[in-house]
Nucleic acid binder design. Sequence first.
DNA 1: TTCCAGGGGTAGA
DNA 2: TCTACCCATGGA
Length: 319
Amino acid sequence: MTARQDGHGDLRTTKITSAAPTPFDFAGTVYSHGWAVLDPNRWDDNRLALIRTERLGPGRVVHLTVRGSGRADRQRIRIDVAHDGEMRAEERRAVRRSIRRMLRLDEDLGPFHAQCRQAGARWEAASHGLGRLLRSPSVFEDAVKTICTTNVQWGGTKAMLRRLTQRLGESGPLSGADPVAFSNSFPTPAAIAAADGRTLAGARLGYRAPYIRELAERVTAGELDLEELLTRDASTDEVRRALLDIKGVGPYAAATMLMLLGRYDHLAVDSVYRTFVSRRYFEGGQPSDREAEQVYAEWGRWKYLGYWFDLWQGLDEEV
DNA sequence: TTCCAGGGGTAGA
DNA sequence: TCTACCCATGGA
């Protein structure tokens, strides 16, 4: 990691770089699924940059602009951090850790890429540095976002997370001046747990609100350690059962969370999955969920990713 | 108006 | 384990 600071009045920019794996497709990784455009993330399609507002500690919020640079076979990640005052070494390390985790830069996808090359033309493109589906710096943020994808159209998910972040997140040095470009940070569990009913109701989360409130309360009280799920040395089934114990998390949400935790052996069967598999593999017929899941059985531990890039290839063909 | 979305909880069988 | 019913909200 390297860091350099330039002074611009009170607002400063610190530049951080970090190595990427090979092969690595930065834009394809960030925009690998909808997470890229859920607050506090924004995607700048012109600059091919991920913009994110990040809370580093009490009263300490910064804005990150993340880009890829260098040759395809020797990519680097460049992070511009906009912040007030000095940026401490520990804060720079925290930013780097968050971005590496979001982009899954330390996850070994070699076996998946090898399987893609064997699977045929539909998956060949994924072997060129795709497969690292964007996630959040915390399991809590991913859990809240996942619950907000259930039984709602995508536009509704985006609106819910925008309202939640506006109301309970913290503004950074640029949020006030340009709220279109820079969101607030993602709310902490404590902020959601402590929110009064009226504030939370304003986020219009519907019946999901009590689930998210309860999740935030359990995390804040130390009763539930979501972060531990990321490194737990246990079978996927055990982690899945722990996820299903969270109110608001059912089979679809648990499979989505497992994907975000780096486990791809369960499929998130939702309306998108059913529609896609019905059209592509059942000539428009309506298979049972069990039959529909068999489509990707041969992908083994990579089922989710096998499905995901089949779906994306299908979307490309429709354009 | 009615239906349904990147479903899930609960009760009852 | 399976089914019926209910759950806020908003777009089509």
